[in-house]
Design a protein around this nucleic acid. Structure first.
Lengths: 140, 140
DNA sequence: CACGTTCTTGACGTTGACGTCAACGTAAAG
DNA sequence: CTTTACGTTGACGTCAACGTCAAGAACGTG
């Protein structure tokens, strides 16, 4: 598993690094161009401009992927922004690194709470299914 | 792990079955009375009425717990309603049971997707922490 | 029984996350 | 060179999930 750093990600052999238009990224991620623009308004992505036209690089697509995963996990966009900004934050000085490490810990706590909730939901679901199957059994 | 059925849950020895006022449940779950009322408006809970006053039983608190966990997992309230209604759905006839089992499968797919997202996020975070610690090392 | 506390039902306000025009530039195609 | 397809910036609309009054009703307490 590799870090999601959006700035200097390791080149994978098969990576498709063509730049994209807004329609292409939107289509690729199954969202509308309005959604992509909205994320830009909130500062979650900042595509290059050629003239006035937006040009999306791999970095932008990486971030978009992180954004959408964050959404699937139920995080608000503002919080998602602080998280992916964290990945790209400068960590040259010790104080910065320590700050980042602190943030990482907070994030981990949050994610692990969610995991507990998720595991609980899944086992209740499994138990409920067991009951239903037992009921079905009784009905012959 | 026990099923979350809100109708005929097993009596646990230490269970506190006092009925509560809206202020008490709200306080107990760390939400406002407005939130509790909102859930009732959407049909997620339906407390008894004594005169005009709401009386909350253990069943209601169970449902409230499920609602809030659903929220922590990022589900919209409408979807949460269909889920907890599923738990209390009649399953006397075979066709009903089969429908319920189908719904259970859909739910499981969804939850497992979330789990994958969550695991991915957690391992990226761990990898990122490793990098930060390495950076810290280099700084002496 | 007056009084403060808690409960009730509206009803309007707010915030987040977009949807949905309108009105306009631009670049390749016929 | 006009058409057609995308692109751009506003600006307003919408829906969910509550927040925030307002204005009573009901209930225990001195």
């Amino acid at each position: 598993m590799t870090s999601p750093s959006t700035t200097r990600a390791a080149r994978t052999p098969g990576a498709d690094d063509r730049t994209r238009t807004i329609a292409e990224v939107a289509d690729e991620f199954g969202v509308t161009h309005r959604t992509v623009r909205h994320y830009e308004e909130l500062g979650l992505i900042s595509p290059e401009r050629r003239g006035t036209t937006r040009v999306y690089h791999r970095r932008d697509r990486t971030r978009l992927g992180l954004i959408l995963r964050g959404k699937r996990l139920g995080f608000p966009l503002e919080e998602i922004r602080t998280i992916i900004d964290l990945y790209d934050a400068p960590r040259g000085r010790r104080s910065q690194l320590e700050y980042v490490l602190g943030q990482i810990d907070e994030r981990r706590e949050d994610l692990e709470q969610r995991r507990r909730d998720l595991e609980a939901a899944l086992s209740e679901l499994t138990e409920f299914e067991r009951r239903c199957r037992a009921d079905l059994e009784r009905l012959g």
